[in-house]
Nucleic acid binder design. Structure first.
Lengths: 227, 227
DNA sequence: AAATTAAACGGACCTCGGTCCGGATCCTTT
DNA sequence: AAAGGATCCGGACCGAGGTCCGTTTAATTT
C-alpha cells in the first residue's frame, strides 16, 4: 500500500495532523501512515474541493499564488477547514504532489527495472537519480513551495521513503560504508532547491546535472563510470 | 579583506540591501561586497544597538524569540529601521553570524594548515568538514533560523564563499570531475539543517558524523581513508 | 425517528514579517 | 552659520499563516 498519503489523520480538537509516529528507525519501504481513516462525508467532499481549487490556483497563478484564504474561498469553504485538513500550507502543497509521489513510489517498488527491482543496485541508483532530476525539473515551483521548514525537512513521509530506498540500495552496493549518511548525501544532490538554483540561476543544463549524478554514484559506490 | 559583511549597503528609498552583484561566476575567494559604505552617524549607532539587542534576545529566548518588533523595541528604535538596515529577518540573523563567519573565512584563507593553505587539498577538505561540523553544532539554532528561503539559499555571500573554497580544493584534488557540482554535494553533507536532524532527531553522535565526512571525502576524491 | 455524541465547520482573531511615507536628522555647501 | 538636500527614522498599515471556539452536521444508538 505504499505509504498512502502522508498526513490526513483526523485528530481531536484541532492539533495539526501529526506524523502517526511509525517505527523509530524504519528501514523498510512503505512508511506506514494509513490512508484517510474514514473521513466523514462532508469532510471528504471538502477535501476534494480544496485540492481541486488549489490545483486550479497553481495552474493559474503559480504556487506562489496559493494562499490559504484564496484556496478556502475558491472552494467555498471556511479557512479553518483548510488548516484542519492539511495542517498547514506545506501540508496542502504536499498533498498536491501526493499523486505524483505515489506513482513514483510504485515505480520504485514494483515497476520495471532499472528503476524498479530486478536490476543491480548501482544501476538502480543511476536510474533513480535521473528520474528524480526529471521530476524535480517538472514540478519545480510546487516542490520549492512545498518545502517544509528546516526542522521538519527531513521527517516528511515522502522524504523518509526516498531516503529509505536509497539507503537500501546503498547497503547492497556499498556494504562497507555508512549507508544512512551516504543516502542523505546522495539525496541532497537531487534536492529541488539545488536543482532550481543550478538550472535556473546558474544556467547549468540538465545533461550536465545528470552526468554529475552518474559520476557521483560512481564515486560514492567506488565503481567505474558506465559507458 | 575577506568578504566583509554580506549585506549592509545603504540604498535609496527602501529596497532591500541587494547582493551588489559581483562577478557572475566568481571562483576567487573574497566575495567582494564592500563594508558599510560610510553609514550616517545615527544609522551606525542604531545598527550597533540593533545587533546588540538581537544578540541579547537570542541569548535569552533562543533564535525563535527574535522577532523584528521585539528587536526594534529592545533597541529603542522603529521597526522600519530594522528592515532598512538588514533587509529582512534572515539578514538580521546572518549579521549576527557575521563575526564567526569572518573568523572562519580568515582561518581558511590565511590560518595554519591543515585548515589554511599549506596542506595537501584532500587534507584541507577533511579539516574543513570537521570545522564546519563543529560550527554547525555550536551555532545550531542561529544557523537554522538564519537559513534563507529556498530560492536564495545558494546565493548568500557566505554560502558562495564556502562553495568557492570547496570547489577550489576539489579542482586540485579531483582534476577529472565536475568540481562545481561536487562542491555542492560536499557542502550539503555539512548543511546545518541536516546536522540538526541527525544529531538532535536521530541521535547520531558527532563522532559518526565526522567519520562519515572523512569517508565521503575519500570516496569523492577516490583516495584511501586516512589512518 | 428522536436523541446523542463525536467530528467538522467557519470566520473572527492574533501574530509577525514586510512596506510606505510624512517628518526629523545629519552632512554639505556657500 | 544658514540653507539645502540626501539620508534616515518611526510607526501606522497590510497581507498571510495559523488558532480558537461557538455552532452545525453527519453518523450512531435506542
Amino acid at each position: 500500500m505504499l505509504y498512502a498519503g502522508f498526513m490526513s489523520a483526523a485528530l481531536p480538537p484541532f492539533p495539526k495532523p501529526q506524523e502517526t509516529a511509525g517505527p523509530p528507525e524504519l528501514l523498510q519501504v512503505g512508511t506506514g501512515t494509513e490512508e484517510e481513516p474514514c473521513l466523514r462525508a462532508d469532510a471528504a467532499r471538502n477535501r476534494a474541493r480544496l485540492l481541486e481549487a488549489a490545483a486550479r490556483l497553481v495552474a493559474e497563478h503559480g504556487a506562489a499564488g496559493v494562499t490559504m484564504e484564496a484556496v478556502a474561498a475558491a472552494a467555498s469553504v471556511g479557512k479553518g477547514t483548510v488548516f484542519r485538513r492539511f495542517g498547514d500550507r506545506t501540508g496542502l502543497l504536499m498533498a498536491l504532489l501526493d499523486h505524483s509521489e505515489k506513482k513514483f513510489q510504485a515505480a520504485l517498488l514494483g515497476g520495471p527495472p532499472p528503476l524498479g527491482p530486478g536490476a543491480p543496485p548501482v544501476e538502480r541508483l543511476r536510474a533513480f537519480g535521473c528520474a528524480m532530476l526529471r521530476r524535480s525539473i517538472d514540478e519545480m515551483d510546487l516542490q520549492l513551495a512545498a518545502e517544509p521548514s528546516a526542522e521538519r525537512r527531513y521527517t516528511s513521509a515522502p522524504r523518509r521513503f526516498l531516503r529509505g530506498h536509497v539507503a537500501l540500495l546503498l547497503r547492497q552496493a556499498v556494504p562497507d560504508g555508512d549507508s544512512e549518511l551516504l543516502s542523505h548525501t546522495l539525496l541532497a544532490y537531487l534536492d529541488a532547491a539545488l536543482v532550481h538554483h543550478l538550472t535556473e540561476q546558474c544556467g547549468v543544463p540538465p545533461a550536465r546535472l545528470q552526468a554529475g549524478w552518474l559520476d557521483l554514484v560512481a564515486r560514492v559506490t567506488r565503481t567505474e563510470h558506465p559507458a
